[in-house]
Amino acid sequence: MFILRFLNDQLLKMQWLHELVWSLVENVFGLDVSTRLGGSIHFFIYDIIKIFILLTVLIYLVSYIQSYFPPERTRAILGRFRGITGNTLGALLGTITPFCSCSSIPLFIGFTSAGLPLGVTFSFLLSSPFVDLASMILLASIFNWKIAIVYVVVGVLLAIVGGTIISKMQLEQYVAPFVFHQEISDFEKETTMTRRERMAYAWDQVTDIVKRIWIYIVIGVAIGAAIHNWIPAEMISALLGQDKWYSVLLATAIGIPMYADIFGALPIAEALVYKGVGVGTVLGFMMAVTAISPPSLIMLNQVVKSRLMAVFVTVVIVGIIIIGYVLNGFNAWLL
C-alpha cells in the first residue's frame, strides 16, 4: 500500500513538482504562496508543467495502442456486431481511438457504408472525443481515481444509451443517400507496422496533438488560476453552488458553445471543485465542452440532415444534464 500511495502521489499527482514550484515562487520570485498573486502563479506554473508532462506520456501510450486499431480495422470489428453489443463495442472502441474532428465525416461515411447500424456509429462518434484513457488518467491526477472511473463509466454509458436511442428511432432516411453506397478500400497497412514504426507514429501524434491544443491548455489553466484565486467563492457558489437547482443546467449551457479540448477544460474544472462546486456540475461542464464541438457538428451536417443532428444534440445534452444531477447526489462520496 505504501508503495502504491507513493507512486500515486509522486508520479500521478506530482507532489515533487508541487513542492518544487512552491519553493520557486517563494524563494526565487519572493512571493508568498498564500497571497493571491503568489497562489495564482503557483497554480499556473504547477498545472501547466503537470498537464504537459502527463499529456506527453499519455498521448504516446494511447497512440501506441491506437496504432493497432486504424479506422479500417475498427470498421471491420464493429461490422460483426448488432444491437446493444454493437453499441457497447462502438463506445469502447471510441475510447481508444481519439481522432481529429476533421476525420469524423469520412469515418461516419466509412462506418455507415459498411452496413453498421446508425446507432453503433453514433455510439462511437459520441464516446470518441470525450472519453479516452488520457483523460481518465488526468482526472485521476487532478482529482482521484473514483472520479476518473466514474467519468469513464458514465461517458461510455451515455454513448451506449445515446446510440441505442438513435437506432430505435430509425433515422436512416435523414442520412444523405450516397453515404450508404460509398466504397472504402480495405488496405490495412497499419497492422503490418513494425515496433519502431509504431513508436515513430506515437511520437508524431504527441507532437501533432500538443501543437494543436497547447493554446487551449494555457487558456484553460489561466482561467483556472483566475477562478482559484481572484473570483470570490461566494460568487461561484451563487451561480454554481450545490444547493442551486439550476447549477448543472447553467454549467452545461456555458460548456456547449465552448470549443476546447478536454485538457483545456480540466484546469477550469479543478479550480471549480476547489471552490466547492459539485462534482456532477463540473463533470457536466467538461462533457458539454468536449462532446459537442461546433466545428465537427457543422461538418457532420454535410452528410446528415438537421433532424438527425437535432436528435443527436438533444440526446447528448439531456444525457449530460441527467449525469450532472445524479453525480451531484454522490458528491460527498466522490470527493
Binding site: P71, R75, F99, S103, P106, L107, I109, S185
Partner: peptide, 10 residues
C-alpha cells in the same frame, strides 16, 4: 474526397 475510398483525412 470519399471517391478515393479513404476513412481518414488529411
Amino acid at each position: 474526397i470519399m471517391s478515393y475510398k479513404i476513412m481518414s483525412t488529411p
